[in-house]
Amino acid sequence: AELMTLTIVKGAQGFGFTIADSPTGQRVKQILDIQGCPGLCEGDLIVEINQQNVQNLSHTEVVDILKDCPIGSETSLIIHRG
């Protein structure tokens, strides 16, 4: 298992991935745009978004944080894999 830092840019259609609740937090459910989120894999656990720890937040709260990220700006994700 490892922590990885990824930088992704939000496009007009969003980030290009969906998230779902899991017992340990929000996991990447589906990658819709592989080019839009390079390095991200289905099943990755989202630990931080732009230096904000999201592991204890609800699904709705994490979705809102992602929605609030401006289109075209870089967003830093720390994910836990494995």
Rank of each mutant, 00 (worst) to 15 (best):
I49N: 01
Q51S: 11
P70L: 07
I19Q: 00
V63K: 07
P23E: 11
G43L: 12
V63G: 08
E42N: 07
L57H: 12
T24S: 12
I49Q: 00
T60L: 12
G82R: 12
V47Y: 02
I79L: 14
V54S: 02
L32T: 11
F15I: 09
E61M: 15
D68H: 15
I31G: 06
K29A: 07
D64Y: 15
P70W: 07
M4C: 05
E48I: 00
V47D: 04
I78K: 05
R81E: 01
H80Q: 13
S58D: 03
E2Y: 07
A20N: 04
A20K: 11
G11A: 13
A12S: 10
T60C: 15
Q13P: 12
E42Y: 09
L6T: 09
S73K: 10
G16R: 09
M4T: 12
L57A: 14
Q13R: 11
Q13G: 12
P23G: 07
V54C: 07
T18M: 09
D68W: 04
E74D: 15
A20M: 15
D68P: 03
E61P: 00
D64T: 05
I78T: 03
G14P: 10
I71F: 12
Q51E: 12
G25W: 01
D33H: 07
I34S: 11
T75G: 08
T7I: 12
R81S: 09
R27W: 09
G72C: 14
I65A: 10
K10W: 01
G72M: 14
T18F: 04
D68T: 04
T5E: 07
G25L: 01
D64M: 02
Q26Y: 15
G14K: 09
H80T: 14
K29T: 14
H59V: 08
E74C: 02
Q51A: 12
G72H: 02
I8F: 14
H80A: 09
V62C: 15
P23V: 02
L32G: 13
I65M: 09
I19P: 11
G11N: 13
G39R: 04
I31V: 10
G16W: 10
T24P: 12
D64A: 03
T5D: 11
P38N: 01
G43N: 01
L45M: 15
D33C: 07
C41K: 10
I8Y: 12
G39K: 03
C41M: 10
I71L: 06
S58G: 13
Q26E: 13
K10C: 03
T7Q: 07
E42V: 09
H80W: 08
Q30E: 03
F15E: 05
G36F: 02
T18I: 13
M4N: 09
A12G: 13
V54F: 00
T24V: 08
Q13I: 03
K10S: 04
L3S: 11
V62H: 01
Q26L: 11
L57Q: 08
I8P: 07
P38L: 14
Q51M: 10
K29M: 09
A12V: 13
G43Q: 15
F17D: 00
S73M: 12
I65G: 02
D68S: 06
F15A: 04
P23C: 13
M4V: 10
K10M: 06
C37N: 15
I49F: 08
V9L: 05
G36Q: 09
I79Q: 00
C69N: 03
Q51V: 07
S73Y: 04
L57W: 05
D21E: 11
D64P: 03
T5N: 14
I65T: 10
L77E: 00
S58R: 05
Q13D: 09
E61F: 01
G43F: 02
C41R: 11
F17R: 00
S73T: 07
Q35S: 12
Q35G: 14
H80F: 05
L45T: 02
G43W: 03
S22C: 06
G43S: 06
I8V: 12
I8D: 00
N53A: 07
V9W: 08
G39E: 02
L6A: 05
T18K: 14
E2A: 10
K67W: 03
I49G: 00
